[in-house]
Design a protein around this nucleic acid. Sequence first.
DNA 1: GTCTATAAGAGGATAGAC
DNA 2: GTCTATCCTCTTATAGAC
Lengths: 209, 209
Amino acid sequence: MRSYNRSVARLSFRQKVLRDREDAIVASVNRLLAAKGFDLMTVDEVAADVGIAKASLYKHFASKEALAAAAMVRVLEIALQLVAALQADASLDAFDRLKAVTRWALQTQLAGEMPSLPAQNSTLRNALMADRGYVDRLIELSDRLGEWISAAQASGRLSRALPPEVVLYTLFARACDPVPGVLRAGGSYEDEQLIEWVLATCFDGLATR
Amino acid sequence: MRSYNRSVARLSFRQKVLRDREDAIVASVNRLLAAKGFDLMTVDEVAADVGIAKASLYKHFASKEALAAAAMVRVLEIALQLVAALQADASLDAFDRLKAVTRWALQTQLAGEMPSLPAQNSTLRNALMADRGYVDRLIELSDRLGEWISAAQASGRLSRALPPEVVLYTLFARACDPVPGVLRAGGSYEDEQLIEWVLATCFDGLATR
DNA sequence: GTCTATAAGAGGATAGAC
DNA sequence: GTCTATCCTCTTATAGAC
C-alpha cells in the first residue's frame, strides 16, 4: 500500500516535471514564433533557449511542425479562457466582447507572445490540420466568436452588410497584423494609445464617422 | 563610321535582350514571392521558372535579396504610375484616390502579383534598406499617399482622430492582408464582391455606420 | 529522457569550361 | 553570360551511449 502510494506519488511527480518541461518548451516556441515566425525559427534555437539538447526536444515533440502546433494550442486555450470570462460578464454585449478579445490579441502581439504562422507554408498547414487538438480548439473558438458576431449584427452594432465569415477572418487577421509592431518601431506612441488606434481602424474604419 | 553605328546598334540590341531577360526574371520572382513568400521561395525555383541555370541568374542579380528588391521596385514603380494617373483624374478627391489605390492593391494581390515580404526577416530588411532604388521609390510612394491622407483629413472624409502615419501603415498592410486570399479559398464569393467587402472593412470598419 | 555526434538533404552561392 | 558541377553552410532529424 505504502509502496503503491509512493510509486503513484513518484509517477505523478515525474509527470509534473515532464509537463513543466514541456510547458517551458512551448513557452519558448511561442516567443520565438512571435519574434521570428515559423520559417526563421530553428529547432536548435528552441533547444538552446530551453536549455536542453535538441535530441531531447524530439523526445517531447515529433517535429518542428508539432512544436508550432503546441504553441498554437496554447494560445487558443488562453483565448478560449478569455472568451469564457467575457461570456460570463453580463455587463458586456456581444459587440463589446468582440472588441475586448481583439484588444487582448493586439496586446498579446505587442507583448511578443502571439505566435504568427505563415498562411503560405503548406507543410505546416497540413500538419496543423491533421492535429486534432489544434483543429478542435480553432473550431471551438470560431464557433464562440461566430455566435457573438451574429448577436452583434442582430443588435445592430456590427455591420449587417458583411457576412459573418468576413468579420471572423478579419478579426483573426488583426491578431497577426504587422501594423502595431511597425507603429511601435516608429517609437512615437505609447502602446495603449497605439492599440486604441488600431482597434479604431478595425471597428470604425479609416473614414470619418 | 558605319562600323561605329553597327557596333552601337548591336550593343543596344544586346542590352535589350538582357533587359528582357531581367524583366522575365523579375516577373517570375514577383509571382513566386506572391505565391510562397520570400523564405519559401528558392533560387532554384526561380531559375527553373525562368528556364535558365541558377548560375546565370547570379550574373544578373547578386543575391536572393537582390531578386526580392527588384520585384519590390517593379511593384512600387507600377504603384507610382497608378498614383500619377489618379492624381491626374480631376474627378476624384483625395479620399477617392486612396480608396482606388487600395482597391488596386487588393486586386493585384488576388491576381497573385503582389509580392509579400516578411517584416521579420532582418537580413532581407537590411538588404532592402541598403537598396537605393527600393528606398527612394518607397519614400516617393509614401510621400504621395501622405499628401492624399492629409488632404482627405482636411476635407473631412478621412478620420482626423488618426495620425497620418497610422493611416499610411494601415493601407500598406492591407496590400498584403491574408483576408482576401482566405475568403477566396472559402470559395463562396466572387472576387469583385470580396474586394468590396475588404475595402468596406478597411474604410468603414466592422461596426454599423 | 538526456546527452554527443552525425546522418541526410535542402538551399545559397561559386568555379571554371565554353 | 550561359552552362554543368560542386562547394559549403545551415537545418531537420536520428543513432546510440549513458
